[in-house]
């Protein structure tokens, strides 16, 4: 549905995109992640036909974004960053305007608008002026605008930025629902959004793609999580013996509770049998093992690792 090939974009001397390539299949929901200034918005603006690339090619729904820009634009719905809207218009007037300009035929317009209103749960505000709406509602109007013509591809630039946690959850649910009917690319800072809704994650940093994979596989590439063990016994002896067993990696005491201590042991290269070692000490000293487990690894960790790596490489280069 979307093909991007060695895409480059420079603003004057600043190179925002340094040759990125990726593909998106029909029905995929892609999370587009990256630090501020990584090139997410630039990529999206090129895909929507707003910006012209400096070099490379991109196509949406089989149409080249430069040569067949109008066809590309017919096949996309776009929510720009910060959700620009005509504040003085009423919600229904605005959606009608968008449907008209997008070429939704007259006889289908009412149905299309009603569908967008229902999907985005805008029934309560259709008759209001956009200027009166809360940020959450505005965001949903922006989304309704993007889907009113039932585009094949949805491009959403930070659809949840600036919303409160409840609104974020609502918008996220909406995106999940939209993902069933549309191919979606969304950029975001909120990684939970991606965890839930996206089938694949593309991480971009310094104008380059540093990862393009499913969430689970990105996490699997991370080093093993630290071991957290809660042990009943004398604290000094526990800390000392664990330190002897696994030098350098042990063991900050996180918590003391009811004569038990909770310690954190770095996993190191991931191959060292930490749990086994801990169990061995338990048996030898007659301590009680209250709980043991691994710290969960998250997409956040993968994101930090990959983007920091990229910015360090860029600094050395």
């Amino acid at each position: 549905m979307i093909e991007v090939d060695q895409l480059e974009k420079s603003y004057g001397f600043a190179r925002a995109l340094k040759g990125i390539s990726f593909r998106v299949q029909r029905g995929e929901v892609i999370g587009f992640l990256g630090p501020n200034g990584a090139g997410k918005s630039t990529t999206m603006k090129i895909l929507t036909g707003y910006l012209l690339p400096t070099a490379g090619r991109a196509s949406v729904a089989g149409f080249d974004v430069v040569e067949r820009s109008l066809e590309v634009r017919r096949n996309i719905g776009y929510l720009p960053e910060s959700t620009p809207l005509y504040a003085e218009m009423r919600v229904d007037d605005y959606l009608r305007f968008c449907a008209e300009i997008r070429g939704v035929p007259r006889q289908k317009r009412n149905v299309a608008i009603a569908r967008a209103v229902e999907l985005c749960a805008l029934q309560r505000v259709v008759g209001k002026n956009i200027v009166e709406l809360s940020k959450g509602y505005r965001q949903r109007v922006g989304l309704a605008q993007a889907i009113v013509h039932e585009p094949a591809v949805l491009i959403l630039d930070e659809p949840t930025s600036g919303l409160d946690p409840n609104q974020i959850i609502e918008v996220r649910k909406l995106i999940e629902r939209l993902g069933k009917e549309h191919t979606v690319i969304l950029s975001t800072h909120y990684l939970q959004e991606v965890e839930r809704a996206c089938s694949r994650v593309i991480i971009i940093s310094q104008g380059l793609i540093v990862a393009d994979d499913t969430r689970d596989r990105l996490i699997a590439q991370l080093p093993a999580g630290a071991v957290i063990a809660t042990i009943r016994g004398p604290e000094p002896a526990i800390v000392a013996q664990l330190g002897e067993l696994m030098p350098g990696r042990v063991a900050s005491v996180l918590e003391r509770h009811d004569g038990a201590v909770t310690v954190r042991i770095e996993a190191g290269d991931g191959r060292a049998p930490v749990e086994e070692g801990v169990a061995h000490l338990m048996v030898k000293n007659g301590w009680g093992l209250v709980a043991i487990g691994r710290e969960p690894r998250t997409l956040e960790d993968a994101f930090r690792r990959l983007t920091l790596q990229a910015s360090q490489e860029a600094m050395h280069a």
Partner: peptide, 9 residues
């Protein structure tokens, strides 16, 4: 809104 306007077909 200009950005949106210019991404209309």
């Amino acid at each position: 809104t200009l950005e949106l306007l210019m991404t209309f077909p």
